[in-house]
Design a protein around this nucleic acid. Structure first.
Length: 641
RNA sequence: GCCGGCGUAGCUCAGCGGUAGAGCGGCUGAUUCGUAAUCAGUUAGUCGGUGGUUCGAAUCCACUCGCCGGCUCCA
């Protein structure tokens, strides 16, 4: 059997030889350093037997793929430590995850972060002992026996599942006296786990199902190098500093008032200014793209929500109704049924289609209390909503139009990296197969036409139609869901929407529901975190501030600010404070105002302003008109600064 | 909704059974100053809410509201 090595050489090995033995054949040094391998990109344990040919690559501690193995072993070391420190510990699962690892435990004692020092010390001991990690396989009967003996009820449940899936044996890993049912891969020796940290303890349902018992999950992370671990911790701190829930109130953009109602946003003047800039831009882009705007009420009678299906499928996410006469009114959790009313207000012809109706519609949803998260998950929010009602022939072009508009708008805000997911028909769905196929095809073709990468999420569509979701990547590489483009086969049926075709027959239109920014609130929150509050000039609530050197320059400062304001730039003269220049600059810096204009006697004499940027660059004096042109150009180009 | 942690001045936090504290901020005054915090004085709170234990509760207990981190759900 032949394996292709990374340098292109072919290595002749006997079938069934273990990864580690192959590594020693290549070289003893390599053998000592081996923690696993990949075969055609697939991760292998160092104890695995290689039975197929392919591209073979040994993983050592400094390989990028090693981190997954390191973390998996870290979770076992954690489990061993917890088991040795506490009584009656039952193990659930303990995988490596994107940023680290966790282990879920069931134990009578409640763990808290105060216990981390002790657990960490115990883990260190296990690492220092350099226990050899061994693997062994058992048939289901022996495995059950072994787990029963250890009273590991959760692991037993897992074994039953593996057996029902047809597994004939299950693997265990052992280090010191500790054994765990586990697929691996793992390091060779606990001593190879050097750089780890415990991060958090939280509740987690067994198997992720809220009907099951809640376990205690300990989160941690581990890296091959201490430096990487430190960088990770710094990145977490950086994320904390960018938190929109902290920056929003600090920059006087918005606040929450939980005593009045959790999850409801209060927009301050500066936040509202910014919001208006976003809305104006959004409206002009939509107008250019042939959208019309509609406005609809905030409440509607229960009959409407019954007919739309919301009371059957969405009721627990809706605020309880208010009563008027013998009627119940509900706050709208979505705009769609209202847009359908407008459609139904007269008969529609194929000549009218496509209709593109947009509304910055504020909706209210009674989100479960534990899920609220500042602007990113609120109970009242404004969707940048639109419904496109089209004939079957128009569907593909409409989707393409939506995607083009999406990326046009998102890139204007400085987002260039996206992840796109196409979600297809789930098991439970409405609408016939033909429609699903056509709509899914339209979505896919639109993505392909634009030459975009995407993932298919099979069966993840809504019950009423397939969809495209866009996640955008921010400055820290985090992903946020914003855009969604969804077909809806439910509402046209329920409301019996029709249009008169050229054949004189009534036809059912396609309905596309789309939100590009997602919601203004969430998008705003993402902007705050992405820019850390230092917004591009066109978005900054205050674009320039005029700072007099002494009180004698106040009059000139006001004059300068007046002229700048006339050109449409948002500006303020700081003439009502008695502070020295350094102090004023300090404060303007904290407010993250893009342009600081220093005016003293020198500037007053020459009719100039001295320009300092919030990036701390001092660009020196220039005529006022020159600054105005400079700023207008930056605003027009949507430049950062 | 569930698990855990936490609610003290506008903000950040100390105090953890014996008369509520600091720094920043705010206010007042002095200073008139050239690119990230001038100096001085002063103002600060039903210690989230309700009930209980106690001679006495910010501190201990119960309930409740809210926030934070997860889980589940989601724009």
């Amino acid at each position: 059997m032949k394996l292709t090595l990374p340098d292109g050489d072919e290595l002749e090995v006997e079938e069934g030889k273990r990864v580690i033995d192959i590594a020693y054949d290549i070289g003893p040094g390599l053998g000592d350093a081996t923690v696993g391998a990949t075969l055609d990109g697939e991760l292998l344990d160092l104890r695995d037997e290689v039975v197929e040919e392919g591209e073979f690559k040994i993983i050592t501690l400094d390989s990028p793929q090693a981190v997954e193995i390191i973390r998996h072993t870290a979770s076992h070391v954690l489990a061993q430590a917890v088991k040795s420190l506490y009584d009656d510990v039952k193990l659930a699962i303990g995988p490596a995850i994107e940023d680290g690892f966790y282990y879920d435990f069931d134990l009578p004692e409640t763990l808290s972060e105060e216990d981390f020092d002790e657990i960490r010390d115990e883990m260190r001991k296990i690492v220092e002992e350099e226990y050899e990690i061994e693997r062994f396989a058992l048939d289901p009967g022996k495995a059950r026996e072994h787990l029963l003996e250890q009273d590991e009820e959760y692991k037993l449940e897992l074994v039953e599942e593996f057996v029902s899936e047809g597994e004939e044996e299950v693997t265990f890993y052992r280090q010191d006296g500790f054994t765990d049912l586990c697929e691996g891969p793992h390091l060779r020796n606990t001593g190879q786990l050097e750089h780890f940290e415990l991060l958090d303890v939280a509740g987690a349902y067994w198997r992720g199902d809220e009907n099951n018992v809640m376990l205690q999950r300990v989160y941690g992370t581990a890296f091959a190098e201490e430096k990487e671990l430190q960088e990770y911790i710094e990145r977490q701190e950086e994320a904390k500093e960018r938190d929109h829930r902290k920056l929003g109130p600090e920059l006087d953009l918005f606040t929450f008032h939980p005593e009045v109602g959790p999850g409801l946003v209060y927009w301050h003047p500066k936040g509202t200014e910014m919001l208006n800039v976003i809305k104006d831009f959004w409206r002009s882009k939509h107008r250019e793209d042939g959208y019309e705007f509609v406005s609809t009420p905030h409440i509607g009678k229960s009959d409407l929500w019954k007919k739309s299906g919301h009371l059957d499928y969405f009721r627990e996410d809706m605020f309880p109704p208010m009563r008027e006469s013998n009627q119940e009114y509900f706050l709208k959790p979505m705009n769609c049924p209202f847009h359908v009313q407008i459609y139904q207000s007269r008969t529609r012809s194929y000549r009218d289609l496509p209709l593109r109706w947009a509304e910055l519609g504020t909706v209210y949803r009674h989100e479960r209390s534990g899920v609220l998260h500042g602007l990113l998950r609120a109970r009242g929010f404004t969707q940048d909503d639109a419904h496109i009602i089209a004939t079957p022939d128009q569907v593909k072009e409409e989707v393409t139009g939506v995607l083009n508009l999406t990326f046009d708008i998102l890139s204007a805000f400085g987002f260039e990296d996206y992840q796109i997911a196409l979600s297809t028909k789930p098991e439970k769905s409405v609408g016939d197969e033909v429609k699903w196929d056509k709509a899914t095809e339209a979505l896919k073709e639109a993505i392909v036409d634009l030459d975009l990468d995407y993932d298919v999420e099979e069966g993840e569509g809504a019950f009423y139609g397939p969809k495209i979701d866009v996640h955008l990547e921010d400055a820290l590489g985090r992903l946020w869901q914003t855009t969604t483009v969804q077909f809806d086969f439910n509402l046209p049926e329920r409301f019996d929407m029709t249009y008169m075709g050229s054949d004189g027959q009534e036809h059912r239109p396609y309905m596309i529901h789309r939100a590009l920014l997602g919601t203004l609130e969430r998008f705003f929150g993402i902007l705050v975190e992405h820019y850390k509050g230092a917004f591009p000039v066109w978005l900054s609530p205050l674009q320039a501030v005029v700072l007099p050197v002494t009180e004698d320059n106040n009059e000139y400062a006001e004059e300068v600010a007046g002229k700048i304001a006339e050109s449409g730039i948002r500006v303020e003269a700081r003439t009502d404070v008695d502070e020295n220049l350094s102090r004023q600059i300090h404060e303007a810096q904290l407010e993250k105002i893009p342009y600081m204009l220093v005016v003293g006697d020198r500037e007053e004499e020459s009719g100039e302003v001295s320009l300092r940027l919030r990036t701390e660059e001092d660009l020196g004096p220039r005529p006022l008109d020159e600054f105005i042109d400079f700023a207008k150009e930056k605003i027009r180009d949507k430049a950062l600064i």
